[in-house]
Amino acid sequence: MSDADSNKTEPGQPSLRTTRRSFIKGVIVSGVAVSAVGYVVYERTARRPAAGAVERLITLNVNGRDRRVDVAPHETLAYTIRNKLGLTGTKVSCDRAECGACTVMLDGVTSYSCSTLTQSVRNRKIVTIEGIAGPTGGLHKVQQAMIDELGPQCGFCTSGQVVSAVALLNRNPKPTQDEARRGMSGNLCKCGAYDHYLKAVMRASQEA
């Protein structure tokens, strides 16, 4: 059965990722809701902040680097990293915290960046797919395992799958297959590549 409320942490551990509820609350606080029509690319030029509005020019720590960036109050993290930082490896597919294509890590914990307000992660360490490879540019063992096991099909969900797998192995280096599939279950793949992705996660877990 599909688990609509799938949670990225193992059973018994508290979920740390932003929930849809806290995202909605954040939107309400900021006073601007994203249009129901679908996701929206925001205006590029910063308007003068109104009295009491949040500061737009903020510092984000992304993949180990501090980046100064102009962020609207209602802007999502997926939008900021894709369109303002040019890190297009993070994908947007459902734009409503269902599919995990936009998964990034916030202080090591996976989060749906499509449903995270950028303003809310100012003091967090953000890791995107571009920050997964080693400092010398070598592939992470999860990435290598995904190549060896032919993990991806179309590849659109792959960035999110890789980030989730890395986060999973960081907190549980030797998961059982069942733990692995529960840990990965917040990431959808419409090609049905789950079997090969799981094999890759298990292979990576066996690497030193």
Binding site: S2, D3, S6, C94, C99, R181, S185, L188, Y194, L198
Partner: peptide, 18 residues
């Protein structure tokens, strides 16, 4: 209209080894 409303298969729906 959404993925979970449509009920696309997830990791939790698949057998362990095909």
């Amino acid at each position: 209209m959404g993925f979970h409303q449509s009920k696309v298969p997830t990791y939790l729906d698949i057998p362990p080894n095909i």
